[in-house]
Design a protein around this nucleic acid. Sequence first.
DNA 1: ATCCAGACCT
DNA 2: AGGTCTGGAT
Length: 336
Amino acid sequence: MKPSEFFDDFSQLLLKWRNPLPGRDLPWAFEPNPYKVWISEIMLQQTQATTVIPYYLSFIEKFPDITSLTEASIDEVLNLWTGLGYYSRARNLHRAAQQIADQHNGQFPTNFEEILALPGVGLSTAGAICALAFGHKAPILDGNAKRVYARSFCVDDEKDSQRTRRLWKIADACTPAEDCQKYTQNIMDLGATVCTPRNPKCEVCPVGSLCCAKSTNLIEKFPARKQRVIRKTKAVTLVVALDQCNRLLLERRPPAGIWGGLWSFPEYSDHIDNVQKWFWQNYTMKISIIQTWDPFHHDFTHFRLNITPLLVQIADSESHRFLEVDIDLVSLDKPL
DNA sequence: ATCCAGACCT
DNA sequence: AGGTCTGGAT
């Protein structure tokens, strides 16, 4: 960790900054009203300011305060959200309003823990509300702040979790107790208008004089790309086996591993020519292949599964071994 | 099409 | 740490 004066310098430079760039006179700026700060921060999650503006204005018009939002139905809220995307934000907003009514007498909570406890509010959003609405010292670490800090202090940890941990420490060290509202507004603005993902305007950056990435000419290297996941590909054949009565053979998977304990088609991974022999060995049923369906893939975090469905017919004489189960009682692992 | 990133949630 | 949703870049 760098000496603390270094972070103080950063704070001072950022605090002194007056954004000369146009387009940042946003309707929610400098409204120290916790309700409006909350609404705007939620809308701004994963959504650009220019997109948010009209939604924000009509939302505030329809629901000017917590009480009006508490009394609204979820349908009314979702209706105003139509077209904005990430609709769970609207559902969380509605739930949070109920929570505020139930637990805080309809008053927006003022302390960090209580704000963080609202559905849809994570660490960064809670910090933003605390800082912007109440002027409390609270760090934020949204996408913009991450980029600004990563560049200013050349944070390049390989592992994303470590990088995030370090960035939070830096955010905490830089965030001033005095003028926290202005500081928070400025770091957001800096990331949005100057320290942009591409073509950052380093010539006009207020912290350019101490920016590590700038001084080492590595601006485009920060923030470091996430460690790419090497996704191996696994190919399996899933056997869709029907008997003469068109009943489907499913089996429960082993309790551990992929789709543990779920019902699935018999999974076969060897060469297709041997599938009849394999089926006999495992199920003592004779099958005839009807057809091979087009392969499709299903992506997991660590690998891609290429699935070839194989439609087969089970010989009639074996069908007595089937156990008939109501399909509604079976937990299937994926749609067909 | 595919990959990637950014928020919160479990 | 992984899942989920989604928009944007390639």
